[in-house]
Design a protein around this nucleic acid. Structure first.
Lengths: 130, 130
DNA sequence: TGTAATGATACCATATTAGTATCATTTGTC
DNA sequence: GACAAATGATACTAATATGGTATCATTACA
C-alpha cells in the first residue's frame, strides 16, 4: 500500500526547489538537480500549471514559478492533482446486497480515519518542507 | 487514491459475517449473503486462512471460522494480508541526488502521517464492526 | 526570423488489482 | 469403500493504474 505515488513525490520536490530558488526555473534545471526523467518532469510541471499551482512562461528564459506563496500550497492539493480524490474506498457491495445499507459501520469507521488523514495532509505545506 | 482495496473490503465483510454467525460458515453461504463472485471469495478466504486469521475445515459440512476472538482481529492486519506493508512511499530519488540525504524533511513529515494512520488502523477490530 | 522554452496529445511499458479456471486433497455419510 | 461436498493449490486472464516516451504545435525573447 502506497499513499504517495512517484509523480506526487517528484512534484513536491520540484515545488520545494522552485520555492527555494524564488525565481523562474526551467525544466532543465529541475531535471539536473532532481535526476527525474525530462519528459516525465515536463508532464508533471504542466499538470501543476493546469492545476493553478504553477505559472509558466514560454519562450527563451521561460520556465515555471509558484503561483502562490509556498505556505499556501498543501500536500493535500498535490496529491489530488496526481492521485485523484483522496478516499479510503467506496462500498464495493451492490447497494441492495450490503447487509446494513445506510448504516454500515465499516464505512463509518473508514470515513472517520479518512477524515483524519485528510486533516493531516491539509496541514503540510510546501513552506514547511523547504 | 484508495486506501482500501476490494479484496480487503470483502475480507472484512466476510469476517464480520463469520463473527456474527459464531459457527462454521461455508463459501456458498458467504457468496449468497455478500454477492461476491464465488472464486474470488474462495481465494480471499484461503488467504485469510494462510494468514492465520481463519481456520478451515474440509469435507462435507466444512467451511471457515475465526481463529481468534473478533476483538483481536484488526483492520491493520487484514490490509497487510491483501495490500502488503502499509507505507506512504519510499524515497524515489536516487540516494546521491536527493538534496538533503538523511535529513529529508519531506520523508519525515510523511512518516509521521503514516505512523498516525497505522495507529488508527490498529485500533479498529472486527468486533467493533459487527 | 531563429531558437529556446512550454503546451497538448497520443502513445507505450510495467505493475497492480480483480477475477477465473482447474485439478488435487480431505472428510463426512451412506 | 465409494461418492459427494467441501477446501487447497496454482496458474492463468482481464482491466486499470502507474510510470514513463515521443512528437508536433505554440509562444516569445534576442
Amino acid at each position: 500500500m502506497k499513499l504517495i505515488t512517484r509523480n506526487t513525490d517528484y512534484a513536491l520536490r520540484a515545488l520545494c526547489y522552485i520555492a527555494k530558488r524564488k525565481n523562474i526555473v526551467a525544466v532543465d534545471e529541475l531535471v539536473k538537480k532532481l535526476g527525474v526523467p525530462r519528459p516525465f518532469m515536463r508532464k508533471i510541471l504542466q499538470q501543476l500549471n493546469k492545476a493553478g499551482i504553477l505559472v509558466s512562461y514560454k519562450g527563451q528564459g521561460g520556465g515555471f514559478r509558484l503561483k502562490v506563496n509556498p505556505e499556501k500550497i498543501y500536500l493535500f492539493q498535490i496529491m489530488r492533482v496526481f492521485q485523484g480524490k483522496v478516499g479510503l474506498s467506496g462500498c464495493f457491495l451492490k447497494k441492495d446486497i450490503c447487509p446494513n445499507k445506510g448504516e454500515c459501520v465499516l464505512r463509518k469507521k473508514i470515513h472517520s480515519i479518512e477524515a483524519d488523514v485528510l486533516r493531516q495532509l491539509k496541514r503540510v505545506n510546501i513552506a514547511s518542507l523547504v
